[in-house]
Design a protein around this nucleic acid. Sequence first.
DNA 1: TGTGTATTTAAGATTTGACTTAATTTAGTC
DNA 2: GACTAAATTAAGTCAAATCTTAAATACACA
Lengths: 109, 109
Amino acid sequence: MVTFTALADPKRRRIVELLATGEMAAGEINKHFRVSGPAISQHLKVLREAHLVRVRVDAQRRVYSLDPKGLDELEEWLMGIRKFWSGRLDALERALRADLPPESKKRKP
Amino acid sequence: MVTFTALADPKRRRIVELLATGEMAAGEINKHFRVSGPAISQHLKVLREAHLVRVRVDAQRRVYSLDPKGLDELEEWLMGIRKFWSGRLDALERALRADLPPESKKRKP
DNA sequence: TGTGTATTTAAGATTTGACTTAATTTAGTC
DNA sequence: GACTAAATTAAGTCAAATCTTAAATACACA
């Protein structure tokens, strides 16, 4: 799950958010940030490897767009957690979750 | 969105996966890894700050469980991206996505 | 009150990550 | 072919993250 590593950086999340509104060339993306070109290029590489973005070559330009695969993987992980979790939640645990007074189960050390 | 930073580490993801199957004391969690106690304790702190886990005190033990808040925030971000994105997808973009021969739009530099 | 257990906090070493400038690649134009 | 534009790769620096061991804290029970 390299997806989380890729999205851990705020600039990379911002890039994904930008691309959600439409495709964009590397240089255009760069204009939205105060860092050098190479910095963005490296971020894009990380996002590419995480299958969060795709490149299309148009002359000298590289036009980036979202790749569904990365987001799908993210959602699958999340849903996997939720599945196990909701299967596990019994009445007591629901009570704890709602911050009701818990039946503190004591236990010898 | 400290959530992504928290989940960027494989050990922390594993901890969340463990807790999805039920609550667990810090020491028990530790047994699932080959690192020292303090290492796990630090990871748990990061997860707590990201609202991905909660602690319940039981005598000397700290019993950890999943916190819905962190996962909810994660899902909200994801759905926000999807919302913008699917709104943007027109016929041409769908075609590109399906890897059909794209109408390469040339453009002077 | 003293001892053992569970866990966290502190301090320091090492690795990993993000940025910069310089050099390289690729494409189009004159 | 030489020149410009767009972007990437390379190399080095600085900051942040993770791990370790040692010390501190909190609790239970004899």
